[in-house]
């Protein structure tokens, strides 16, 4: 059947576009309308910069290496904060998930803390760590920490009791139970938490640069652009930030899919 598509389907012009390109239709249309708007002089506002100017600014920023050094500073902070937050989250999640005592002792405090908006931590963090890199890294560690803890706890608790019984019948030691049943069983949820943490950390990287303004970073490029009313620079920053977020998400999805291939096709469609 698939080799003979119904003729009526060709009435829909969208299906004539090759599949991998369909996702580009909307962005292309927006850029086209934008270009048209400038070209036909629909608006003379300085807010509406020509597409060409943005491209030129982008080229200039790439050629001078400025965008890379700003991006590098942000990414470095992002990855350090993510690594700290996600590792701490894994440990805390494992302790909370495995020990009823820990859950009773720490659980209520943790569930209260997680209700606090991430941005509410900024004043406290800036007092403790200043306005430099340390405060930013601390902020995005927190952003990465919470999703990993929650998903790790959730994953450990959802390990089927049936499999735990099999482990008992086969006389697993506690260590074997942890490494061969609980952690692999919790892995899908743990990966989901790490994936979320990666995205949150990147969002928080930008947030931190806005709220703790000092030093280098792609967010500071955006702020500079705004302060100097350089819309081309702002738009360039937005595109770069979006592209990095997209790339991080893509990498995480790839790793997740590979590590969890045992779950079969049900997951590959995500």
């Amino acid at each position: 059947m698939s080799t003979h598509p119904h003729p009526n389907r060709n009435l829909n012009p969208f299906t004539r576009i090759p599949k991998p390109l369909r996702g580009w239709v909307l962005p292309a249309a927006i850029v086209f309308v934008w270009w048209l708007a400038v070209r036909l002089g629909w608006s003379t506002s300085p807010l509406l910069v020509p597409v060409e100017t943005v491209l030129a600014t982008g080229w200039q920023q790439i050629a001078s290496g400025k965008v890379f050094s700003e991006l590098g500073a942000s990414l470095q902070r992002d990855l350090i904060g993510f690594a700290i937050g996600a590792s701490a989250g894994l440990v805390a999640g494992a302790v909370l998930g495995l020990s009823r005592l820990a859950e009773k002792l720490i659980g209520p405090s943790f569930h209260t803390l997680k209700q606090i908006s991430l941005f509410a931590w900024i004043p406290l963090l800036s007092v403790w760590f200043g306005l430099g890199d340390a405060a930013k890294v601390a902020f995005l560690s927190l952003a990465a920490f919470f999703p990993v803890v929650l998903n790790t706890v959730e994953g450990i608790r959802s390990v089927p009791a049936e499999l735990i019984e099999v482990a008992r019948v086969l006389r697993f030691t506690r260590w074997q139970l942890l490494t061969r049943v609980v952690l692999p069983g919790a892995a899908p949820s743990i990966f989901a938490g790490i994936h979320l943490a990666l995205i949150y950390a990147w969002l928080a990287t930008l947030g931190a640069e806005y709220l703790l303004v000092s030093g280098k970073g792609i967010g500071n490029l955006l702020i500079d652009g705004r302060e100097h009313f350089q819309m081309d620079l702002v738009l360039l920053g937005v595109v770069v930030v979006g592209a990095v977020g997209f790339a991080l998400n893509w990498i995480a999805t790839r790793i997740e899919r590979r590590a969890l291939a045992w779950r079969g096709r049900s997951v590959a469609s995500y």
Binding site: E162, V169, R171, P184, W262, R263
Partner: peptide, 17 residues
């Protein structure tokens, strides 16, 4: 439990990973 006594349940209970 003991390795001298094996059991097969109604569900296979294999480790999916």
């Amino acid at each position: 439990t003991s390795l001298d006594r094996g059991i097969v349940f109604q569900e296979h209970r294999l480790f999916p990973w």
